[in-house]
């Protein structure tokens, strides 16, 4: 780990003043479950680390209008234990349950989950986000068993966020603040597939801090299903979050979002459209799942992830409909 200056501001205003204009000058520290490993591996070598821990306004879950405001520094455990989340937004509760390490749930934050860097092993070994070497993709020519089946250009890593798919399905907004003001963007537009190594995998700018997540109220039945090999701490191989607005027994609107299969969470629009007007059954769930992965373009070693993504969608739909197998 490269030596760095440590700052622990008490207010957001102080924090903004400590951030850099370019990536690499300063990194924001929340729970530290990702940043510290990035620094130990020299993937990040910030000159300054700005801890948010002393900014008390960033933690907690509160009512905001008809919806909920989740402070970025809210721990995964606090989210998981929240009664309103559990009752109205079970997809978030289930996503939190998928982080099967009590230590990480106690320390890791919701904002940190959204901002953590991809786990791509080429990226983590210092080959850059797109992992190009001599003009060729290390991922496409190497071991891509855990990589994207919905790649975007040379971006073959997968978005590691546990909450991203559920937040998109629920229509959440993400608040990004800087010294010059705040902007609220759709969770969907927060994630981006970079076109070059100088770009990031999300819309956050070096001088900004992700401060809160705004959840609209919802009556949609929602659920998350993750496929993880291990019951103990493990990265999902594929995940799906769904939100179903029902009209009686039939779906009037469905949002299906895939996780861990592309450089961003992916909205499977055709699957959502296909579900409209249908009742959820094992059969319709399976058909919608097949629709969701139709456009997948697996790499040399990850065709199996198409099946996993399909299974995740099917099981998330059944779970949302209370028909879990």
């Amino acid at each position: 780990m490269q030596a760095f200056e440590y700052a622990s501001p008490k207010t957001l205003k102080e924090a903004f003043a400590l951030l850099g204009a370019q990536w690499g000058e300063a990194d924001v520290l929340a729970g530290g479950t990702d940043l510290l490993s990035l620094m130990k591996d020299f993937v990040h070598t910030p000159k300054r680390v700005v801890s948010l821990r002393e900014i008390k306004t960033l933690s907690g879950i509160a009512k905001a209008g008809s919806g909920l405001r989740i402070g970025a520094l809210t721990t995964v455990d606090a989210l998981m234990s929240n009664a309103a989340i559990r009752s109205t937004y079970p997809s978030l509760h289930q996503a939190a349950m998928g982080i099967t390490s009590p230590q990480i749930r106690n320390t890791g934050t919701v904002g940190g989950d959204l901002c953590q860097r991809p786990r791509c092993w080429y990226f983590r070994q210092g080959y850059g986000l797109l992992a190009m070497k001599d003009g060729k993709s290390l991922v496409a020519n190497g071991d891509n068993r855990f990589h994207a089946i919905f790649g975007s250009g040379n971006a073959h890593f997968v978005s590691p966020s546990s909450f991203g798919p559920a937040l998109i399905a629920l229509g959440a907004k993400i608040k990004l603040e800087s010294a010059t003001g705040a902007r609220e963007i759709d969770a969907f537009t927060f994630f981006r597939a970079p076109k070059s190594d100088s770009e990031r995998e999300n819309d956050l700018r070096p001088n900004e801090i992700l401060t809160e997540i705004l959840l609209p109220t919802t009556s949609a039945k929602n659920a998350t299903y993750e496929v993880r090999q291990k019951d103990a701490l493990d990265w999902p191989l594929a995940a799906a979050s769904v939100a179903l607005t029902m009209s009686g027994n039939t779906v009037s609107k469905a949002v299906v979002v895939l996780g861990h299969v592309g450089p961003t969470p992916l909205v499977a629009e055709s699957a959502g459209a296909w579900l409209a007007g249908k009742a959820i059954s094992a059969d319709t769930a399976a058909q919608a799942a097949a629709e969701a992965v139709k456009a997948a373009k697996p790499l040399s070693g990850n065709a199996y992830k198409v099946t996993l993504a399909k299974t995740a969608v099917k099981r998330a739909l059944l779970r949302a409909a209370g028909m879990e197998v």
């Binding site: 786990r119 092993w121 080429y122 983590r124 070994q125 080959y127 070497k133 060729k136 290390l138 020519n141 190497g142 071991d143 855990f146 090999q229 291990k230 493990d234 990265w235």
Partner: peptide, 16 residues
Amino acid sequence: DAVTGRVLNPDMEFYK
């Protein structure tokens, strides 16, 4: 990794 010749999972995250 065939190209870099390195171990891709020298950690306890993907060395499961």
